[in-house]
Design a protein around this nucleic acid. Sequence first.
RNA 1: GGGGAGAUUCCCGAGUGGCCAAAGGGAACAGACUGUAAAUCUGUCGGCUCAGCCUUCGGAGGUUCGAAUCCUCCUCUCCCCA
Length: 423
Amino acid sequence: MNLFEEISQRGLIEKATSEELAGKINEGGVTFYVGFDPTGDSLHVGHFAILNLMRLLQKGGHLPIGVMGGGTGMIGDPGGKSKERNLLTQTQIEHNMEGVQAQLGKFLDFQEGNRAILVNNYDWLSQLTLIDFLRDTGKYFSVNTMITRESVKSRLDREGEGISYTEFSYMLLQAYDFYKLNEDHNCTLQIGGSDQWGNIVSGIDLTRRINGAQLYGITMPLITKADGSKFGKSESGAIFLSAEKTSPYEFYQFFLRQADEDVIRFLKVFTEMSLEEISEFEMSVREEPHRRLAQQKLAEEATRAVHGEEILEKVVRASRVLFGEKIENLDDQVISEIFKDVPSLDKEISSLNGGYSLIDALVETGASKSKGQARKLIQSGGAYVNNISQKDIDYQLTMDDLASPSFLILRSGKKNYKLIHLK
RNA sequence: GGGGAGAUUCCCGAGUGGCCAAAGGGAACAGACUGUAAAUCUGUCGGCUCAGCCUUCGGAGGUUCGAAUCCUCCUCUCCCCA
C-alpha cells in the first residue's frame, strides 16, 4: 500500500485540492507546512491527528515546516469565535514557540535528514509595507470571492456583528504565508483543519497568479466522538501535551476512557501502528470488549509518544494501584511518585492524635465544596479512605488510617483522588 | 422619540401574598449495574453547629403579622412602531 492510500485509509484526509497530489505524496520529497496558533505554549490533543499526519509524512520522506502564527495571530481568523485578539508580545510568542517546538520534537525529527523546521510568520509579515502589499498581493484578490467565503459570510450575515477590515485581511496574510514559504523553502503543500479550506485555496490561487507555481492543499476532518461531542475535552478542560498543564497520568487516563465506538478510529488517526495491527485490535473490541485492550493500547501509544517510555511505565503502574484494592503498607516514596499529580494537603501529624474528622478532611482537601456536601457524599458511600468506602459520617481519621508513614489517601467517587501529607 | 415585555438558585424555565430553599428539564456530583465505556435506574444538587437555624428570587427602599410575588425609585435586557 502506498503512502497516500495509507493516510487516507487512516481517515486523515478530508479533502485534497487536486488528484495529482496522491502521486506527489507517493514520490516523496514534498515540503509541506502546518500552521499553529501561537496563543499558548502547549499543544493539546486536538492537535494530535495533525501531528501524527506530519510524523507519517516525514517518515514517508517529506519535509515538514511548522509555522507559528506570530503575525497572523495578531489579526485573528474571522472564523474563530473570539471577537478581539490579544496582542501577544514578541517574548510571549518566543516562549510559546519554544514550548511548541519541544512538543513537535516528540513527533518530528528536527535534527537530520529531511529535517523539520519551525518558523514564525511574524518574521516576514512584519516586513511588509502597506503600499507594497496592496500593490503586489492585494491586487490578486477579488473582494467578490472573499465575501463568499464561509468564514466571512457568516459574519456578514449576522446582524450587528460585521467584520473589521483587519480581520477581513486575515485571509490575505495566510495566503501570503503560503506564497512566501513556497518562494523561500519550496513548500508546495499546506495541511490544515477542515475550517482552513478557504485560506489554503487562497494561498494556492495567489501563488499561481504571482509566479505560476502549482501548490496543493489537504484538509483533515474534524475528529468527533460517537456521542457527537468534540474530541479533546475532559471534565476539567482541554487535555494538553505539556506535563505541566495536564499530568501524564491524566493524559493516559483520558485515552484509556475512550468509547469502543471510537477507539479503533482513534488508533488509526493518532498512532503510527500499522493498519494490520490495528485490525487485530478491532477484532478484540468486537469479541472481548471488556478487556479494553484497544483502549489500553491507544493510551499507551499516545503517552509514549508525548511523554516517553519511562513516564509511561510509571503512569501504568499508578493506574493499577489507583484502580486496585485497599491501599496500605506502602512507603512514602512509592506513594508520592504514584500520586505525584494528585493535589495534596499538608497537615500536622499531631492533628491525627485527637482524631481528624473525615468531613473536615474532605472539605479541606477540596474533595467536597461544603460540609453538607461532604456529609451527603459519605452517606451515599462515595467517600473512600485508602480506597475503602467509609460510610460513617462521624468517622475520625487516626494514625491507623495512614497508607504509608506520612500519607493518607482520600477519594470521592471513582477517580477523584486527594492526598493528605502528614508532617 | 413612542409603545410593550422581561430580569428567579450553574444554565433553561415555572412560580402573582403564607403550603417556597422555590415545580420541571439540563448540567454537575454520588450510588447500583458494568469494562476506569455507553445506556439505564436511584439519590443529591444555597449554607450551617442539619428533625432546627441562617442567607437567597436584578439593586435600593416601602406596604404587611408575613413578600420571589404588592407599591416607589434605580440599573440592565429584549421586542414592536417612528
